[in-house]
Simulated assay, not measured.
Amino acid sequence: MALLVSMLIAFVRLVRGPSLADRIVALDLLTLLAVSVIAVFTIREDQPAFLDAAIALGLVAFLGTVAYARFLERRGRHDSGVEEPRA
């Protein structure tokens, strides 16, 4: 029950923001909580195959967070000499 309440709070932060960094952290937290839910389900149902899915989701979430962080880092640089496209 606590995991679901935590997921709801993280989802509210994901929707409301206020900044892109807040949304990225909220998305990372949501995936961490999803891994936790899968792990609890795995233990409860005694099905170790689901643990592989939790590990895969954790790895994908980690790589996604690193990619977002690199995106934010590059977006913040203005002295690289490369002109950034304007949207």
Rank of each mutant, 00 (worst) to 15 (best):
residue 68 Y to W: 09
residue 63 L to N: 03
residue 18 P to G: 11
residue 85 P to T: 10
residue 5 V to T: 12
residue 68 Y to L: 08
residue 51 L to Q: 02
residue 8 L to V: 13
residue 26 A to V: 07
residue 54 A to K: 03
residue 29 L to W: 06
residue 2 A to E: 15
residue 72 L to D: 06
residue 66 V to L: 10
residue 9 I to N: 06
residue 36 S to A: 15
residue 8 L to D: 05
residue 26 A to H: 06
residue 28 D to R: 04
residue 30 L to H: 04
residue 83 E to D: 13
residue 7 M to F: 13
residue 29 L to S: 07
residue 62 F to D: 06
residue 1 M to A: 15
residue 39 A to F: 09
residue 75 R to D: 06
residue 18 P to W: 02
residue 71 F to R: 08
residue 11 F to V: 04
residue 64 G to T: 09
residue 4 L to H: 12
residue 39 A to Y: 01
residue 46 D to V: 03
residue 68 Y to G: 01
residue 6 S to T: 05
residue 32 L to I: 13
residue 16 R to E: 10
residue 48 P to V: 00
residue 18 P to T: 11
residue 41 F to G: 02
residue 80 S to P: 09
residue 37 V to H: 00
residue 12 V to G: 08
residue 67 A to C: 08
residue 34 A to H: 01
residue 13 R to C: 02
residue 26 A to Q: 01
residue 79 D to V: 11
residue 86 R to P: 04
residue 19 S to R: 10
residue 56 A to W: 08
residue 70 R to N: 12
residue 65 T to R: 07
residue 33 L to R: 00
residue 32 L to H: 05
residue 40 V to S: 02
residue 76 G to L: 13
residue 7 M to T: 07
residue 56 A to T: 04
residue 49 A to C: 01
residue 16 R to Q: 10
residue 17 G to N: 10
residue 15 V to A: 11
residue 74 R to P: 07
residue 51 L to A: 12
residue 61 A to I: 06
residue 12 V to M: 10
residue 53 A to N: 02
residue 66 V to M: 05
residue 52 D to G: 08
residue 35 V to A: 13
residue 61 A to E: 00
residue 77 R to W: 11
residue 67 A to E: 06
residue 7 M to P: 01
residue 86 R to A: 06
residue 61 A to M: 05
